[in-house]
Design a protein around this nucleic acid. Structure first.
Lengths: 236, 236
DNA sequence: CGAAGCCTTGATGCGCCTCAACGTACGTGG
DNA sequence: CCACGTACGTTGAGGCGCATCAAGGCTTCG
């Protein structure tokens, strides 16, 4: 192997909890580490699923295309998460695309080793299915929210989710740690970039957020929580 | 065992494809068959997941409650489908409720046997994860649709889905084979029963459907497909 | 320095929710 | 079997939330 990946890189990540060091080392020996520049497609919806992935560093945008040709962003992923695990669900093709939101480092394994992997390591299998369960539950949650909540609430929720997932404390507040455009938010929430822009402007007026070009900082998170719960008339 | 469940009941169902007759017989020996009257909750969202289920006869409505207290119906289930398989995803509680849409007959197994079951029968494990993969993909699809399509299209799609899933040919057209109210459709599509009523009235005027109290028949399915694809200005 | 990408803000309109009232089928108990 | 209550369906009127259309400013990058 050309590379030398150390066990310490991944041994504390949720997918590998409960696995012995040697097992993890063996697994790493079969991985390829690849860097994807910002904006690059890691894999595309409909493409034959040949590999599965672990995000080591960076942030990934999951993109789903509708038959109408419009984009939806069901989620973002953070370091330590497995993705592209179509094989676990016996899917032949990836059901969505994965795009590098920033420069990313990714471990890649061929699907050929998957069945053997889960067969040999019950802990890994358990962890994987727990992850899938969480994602399914979360997706259903989002479906319900999209069906019942107003745009305001959905946008507030999306921002809160991003902040919780990747927020970094700064002196101004909690900063979402990778570039997010108004359009990105609109694709997460089923609205338009115009509406998102107006909402953020209003919240900025009210002093609840600070935002700029592809950058959002929560100043008063609790206010945004109120909006998300529909307990606020918005920033009048 | 008090009951006598024959292998022929289930051996051709997707979840059991590839399993030996004896294996299926052993599995059935551990099952309890229960009848649920129309409207009865089989299990409830948030309830500790203690069992998993197979629908033998009838139709089941999956209901998800939002924090706002509103209902959403992500899907209906038909005979032959496994449900309540939270254990497969390591979920402690059911993520949604299951309600009998009509009188139902259901097989019930305790979750205690799950791990042993999938460990011992790779074919069953594979089938199960394939099912989950399909549901996850379908849920994401619905999310994308809800985020981008107009109410018209979503309602048309919901009806088409039900018809495809449970449609029965009659002399008038394809009848959805269990009672569905306007409200049910609205909870599947994130709209109001009023809007659904108006749409169905319009389509009935146009001769594309026939509908009545909790009953919908597709007369000209291809017209509804056009609406679903947004290629129709509606029934003017 | 130009071009492209991102953000903002106004004006306009309509899709769909909301509120309201009534009609009709079902089933339950007398 | 009929009378009543309840659940379901229909249809109208009104208005608001948000998409849409339009124009312009600012930042980043080649």
């Amino acid at each position: 192997m050309v590379h030398n990946l150390d066990v310490s890189l991944v041994c504390d990540l949720p997918p590998f909890m409960g696995m012995a060091e040697q097992e993890i080392a063996d697994l790493l020996a079969q991985a390829r580490a690849v860097r994807y520049p910002k904006g690059k497609n890691i894999f595309s919806q409909g493409e034959k699923a040949g590999n599965f992935f672990l995000l080591l560093d960076g942030h990934i945008q999951v993109v789903k295309l509708t038959q109408g040709g419009e984009q939806v962003v069901p989620r973002y992923m953070s370091p330590g998460e497995l993705f592209g695990i179509a094989r676990a669900l016996r899917l032949d093709a990836y059901p969505a695309s994965a795009v590098a939101a920033v420069d990313c480092v990714v471990l890649i394994w061929p699907n050929a080793i998957w069945d053997d992997l889960v067969g040999r390591h019950p802990a890994f299998a358990t962890n994987t299915y727990r992850i899938i369960g969480q994602r399914l539950t979360e997706t259903q949650q989002q479906l319900a929210e999209l069906a019942t909540a107003k745009v305001e609430q959905r946008v507030a929720n999306a921002i809160l989710k991003l902040a919780k997932q990747t927020g970094r404390r700064t002196d101004e507040g909690v900063l979402i740690d990778f570039p997010v455009s108004r359009q990105d938010i609109s694709e997460m929430t089923g609205t338009t970039l115009h509406t998102v822009s107006r909402l953020l402007s209003a919240w900025e007026q009210a002093g609840w957020v600070r935002s700029g070009r592809r950058k959002i900082t929560l100043v008063e998170g609790h206010k945004i929580v109120l909006v998300a719960n529909g307990e606020s008339g918005g920033a009048a």
